[in-house]
Amino acid sequence: MIKNLGILVLLIAVCALTAWQEPRFWSAYNVGNTLSWTGLHGLLALGTAVVILTGGIDLSVGSVAGLAGVMLPWTIVRLGWPPALALPAVLVGAVGIGVIHGLLITRLRLQPFLVTLCGLLVCRGLARYVTGDATIGFREADAPLRAIATATPFSVAVPGLDAPIAIPIAFLWLIAFALVLAIFLRRTIGGRSLFALGKNEAAARMSGVATSTWTVVAYAVSAGVAGFVGALLALDVNSVQPSTHAQWYELYAIAAAVLGGCSLRGGELSVIGVVLGAAILRVLYNAINILAIPTQLEFAVVGIVILVGAMIDEGLRRLTSR
């Protein structure tokens, strides 16, 4: 809880600093936009965090999102599938990729880093091959489907803002998934099993926990969420470039998870923390844009912030353990 408070303070500090430097940050449009991106990246980060909870890593989420983002318009536009079939098919496919990752890791005892790195390469390659590397988009008729990514179901009036914030649906997806995940992790046999195997896989197995099954589930969740995010992103931008769609998003996801308190050793996950972590990364990105900091510096800024965060965390831990 204290850790989450620290992350929240960091988020508020970054927001306040940016708003003080550039009043445009505190506008309904910018806040809505940041919430939307936080939604997409938060979803990815939560999915990845479930894998990190087991002590594994998933490097493939960006590519899985990329492949899903390509396959959705491709099945609808090129193959003429009805959207009601295409979307579930894409999600099932994404989950399938995660299951394959999980089985390779649990049955063949391959290392998660290696397996998901190969997943990253294979999915990106497939996405580019299927479309011949050509940009692909949706048709006019697909507008109803696009609404699941672009709608703003309601607005919230915030005093001091130029206009009511139109809450983007992507952010609502994040809230919904975060709630489900939090309840799953805290209350269910599956959640308990994931925590137990992340903290000590051998002891969990020796207590009768189905460690292999739950490890596969973790990779399936991560890939499934990545597929959903890839689809949302494609529907939102309506122009999917196979080679760059959701590229490097796995790095943002891992960074957000770690910033949100996950230990790469496994066994630790706070849903709120990861959501706040993803929000910090998006606000930083936004700040770099609107403060006219050279965008080339983006990665450097993100890297430094995470490093400083990790150093403060480690320092606090040493202080309290003494």
């Binding site: 925590f195 137990a196 903290k199 000590n200 051998a202 002891a203 969990a204 020796m206 066994g267």
Partner: peptide
């Protein structure tokens, strides 16, 4: 510590 209990739970 390895198999019997989860020390950090």
């Amino acid at each position: 510590p390895a198999d019997g209990v989860i020390l950090d739970a």
